[in-house]
Amino acid sequence: MKISKITTQKKNKNRFNIFISKNGADEYAFSVHEDILIRHYLRKDMELSDEQIKELKEQDAIYQYYTLSINYLSYRMRAKSEIIQYLKEKEASDEAIEVVIKKLEEEKLVNDLAFSQAYVRTKMNTTSKGPNKIRQELMQKKIPQSYIDKALTEYKTEIEADKVIGMMEKKLSGSRKKSYKQQMMQLKQSLMQKGFTQEAIEMASQEVDVTVDEDEEMEALRYQGEKIWNKQARKHEGFQLRQKVMGSLYQKGFSMDLINQFLDEKEEGL
């Protein structure tokens, strides 16, 4: 087949429509990017076989997927798995994806180790996530385990503990309606869920100001105690009522001295 005409696309000046001569008329055959046109020196009256046309179409498709990937990467760094998923959504073939990824890696535009290191630094400095949570997120992005381990060496235990101390002090400084012990226990559980390590949490617990204001503790106990007393008073009385309330408050982390003080107050008011 012979190229009979080459025209520039109206909506994209970097793409060209290739026409072939068929039955004495110009018939549209395919389109290519300017780079493909120049690389293969496509011109009028050039003879092309079916195999050559197939190859040109494949190369042009790869070029388009490559261009899409570059644009996708312009917003932020991406893991290799993210690029692969993106290209699959664009209906790229496995062969085209393989070629594009190889090219991007050769140009150092996709590098899972560099991505992991940048990801850890960003999450460490801008979020309240611990290293275990970040590890999970990187695993979901199919980052190799060795890269994850290396990247997370930047999230040192000391840095983690400092972050935990700040979160503990902020959480414990507000008004509360639970015992300090219960609040600290729940806070530790929350920190574990955020991905902080047991080592860092315990280190922070020893460093944070753990001074318990007895008035605040008593206020929290009265808040909890009134609810428990009213509930148990519907079923028990006398010594049994006292024991039930005492047990419930003790489980909530209050000291026996404060519990007895509260119960004495309740019984005196009866």
Rank of each mutant, 00 (worst) to 15 (best):
I201N: 06
I3S: 05
A96F: 00
F16M: 04
K227W: 07
Q52S: 12
V208T: 08
Q243D: 15
G269F: 14
I134L: 03
Q117G: 08
V210L: 07
G238S: 03
G130Y: 13
Y155G: 13
T7N: 11
Q140Y: 02
Q198G: 02
Q232M: 15
L42H: 07
T157I: 12
Y147G: 00
T122L: 06
K44N: 15
S93M: 14
V210Q: 11
S179A: 13
K102G: 14
E89P: 02
M192D: 06
I97G: 10
I20K: 13
Q9E: 15
M185D: 04
E219R: 15
M168H: 02
Q193G: 00
K188W: 00
M1G: 14
V120M: 05
S248W: 03
L152N: 05
T211K: 07
Q140W: 08
R242G: 01
M184Y: 11
E154D: 12
L138C: 14
E216P: 03
T8W: 10
K133S: 15
Y72W: 05
R222Y: 10
S21R: 12
T8S: 08
Q261F: 02
R176P: 00
N17G: 01
K11M: 09
I62Y: 06
I36Y: 01
E89T: 04
R222P: 04
F30M: 06
H40P: 03
E51I: 11
W229C: 02
D94S: 15
K181G: 01
T122A: 09
D35V: 10
Q136T: 07
I84A: 03
E199F: 07
D94V: 02
E160M: 04
Q193M: 13
K80Q: 13
Q193E: 09
D94G: 05
E91S: 14
E217T: 00
K102S: 13
K231V: 00
I70L: 14
F16G: 01
K54T: 08
I6R: 07
R135A: 14
A96H: 01
